[in-house]
Write a protein that binds this DNA or RNA. Structure first.
Lengths: 194, 194
DNA sequence: CTTTTAATTGACCACTGGTTAATTATAGTG
DNA sequence: CACTATAATTAACCAGTGGTCAATTAAAAG
């Protein structure tokens, strides 16, 4: 009554994570269930619990991965060959792009404050923010206070959290994103020069 | 096996709406259920369905009410006795205050794009936004484009959607809100005068 | 005092979802 | 080949959800 799969079809952590990611692209995280992940993988939902202690552990691995991705993205953009203002705009734009192209993950990373999100991911969020703040500081030739940079982040976050669910990919909101980024940058430029 | 309540204890639409509001203050809307509303009211959940067709109808009445409240708030602030710049800041601040003091309602009003929110409330959201845009336009002595005003709204929305769940009342974020509003206003002031 | 009428109950349905214990087939090992 | 560790299946449990409806009963109307 319980045939085991051939070795070639054996379930791996990676397969489960990948399928979860796939579902995250279509639904928000609340609607991604262990049972449905299993169904799509063609395995029983119980099997997943052999590889992951519980749902939280699975989801946590995913967001950890995405915090790394975001950090890498920020570094990469900051170290690019363009001039500082272009790079600053790119930091803003690529943050938005990241948020809109990984909406469910972004939600877990920056929008949930409930029990679902534990202190570990709060810490990861803070670290990513610090990276962001440092990038903005170093790319701007204006006097920006800590509060200014925070407001910039909030403004970008606002864009992502408004358009998420409304568009499914960054490109659909790209024009609006560029306009928003220009608004922010023009505000930054009004600050006194260093 | 089914005693009916005395007249003095009879259920009314208002009681149900009020209890739903109370629950909205503690939990986000996803976790407010017909069953729990009934439990707190000391009635059976079936009783609620005598007064409301379904959950959507109940929730919709609540957000309708809140769109009206927000509209009134915007009018009130715009028509105040202060000078334009103060009033502009107040419009921003009170929008944030509204969002943080009615978090679940704000979520339904401006954050949900799923099936849960129908086209009717989308329309109400647009109307409220138009009111906001007009207020900003009329209170600003600078040349603001449609895109600029949209960016301002997004920046405010960002504040609300970041702090919601993190603080439970506006006052807890008031200092940060003032700082954010000042950031926005200083950006506005860098635009050419009319 | 009797008949309406209106409000309420509670059982029921059909779901979704996480989690776990018992079970069994397979793969690797000696 | 036998044995064991492993990886999977199954079924059940538990807790919740929105929603429906016949039966009941309190209050209102006559």
């Amino acid at each position: 009554m319980s045939p085991r799969k051939r070795a070639s079809e054996e379930l791996t952590k990676e397969m489960i994570l990948k399928e979860a990611q796939t579902q995250f692209e279509k639904k928000d995280f609340q609607n991604v269930s262990m049972r449905n992940i299993a169904k799509q993988l063609g395995c029983s939902h119980g099997a997943i619990y052999y590889h992951f202690k519980n749902k939280a552990e699975l989801f946590y691995m995913i967001i950890e991965e995405h915090f790394s991705k975001l950090n890498a993205l920020l570094d990469e953009t900051t170290e690019g060959p363009e001039n500082d203002e272009t790079k600053l705009k790119n930091v803003f734009l690529r943050f938005i792009e990241f948020g809109l192209n990984h909406q469910s993950q972004y939600e877990l990373m920056f929008m949930l404050r409930n029990k679902e999100v534990d202190s570990l991911s709060q810490q990861a969020a803070n670290e990513s923010y610090q990276k962001f703040a440092q990038a903005v500081q170093s790319l701007s030739s204006n006097q920006l206070t800590v509060a200014d940079i925070w407001s910039i982040f909030i403004a970008l976050h606002g864009f992502v959290s408004y358009y998420r669910g409304f568009v499914s990919h960054f490109e659909e909101a790209e024009a609006a994103a560029i306009s928003h980024v220009n608004f922010i940058v023009s505000g930054v430029k009004s600050k006194p020069k260093l």
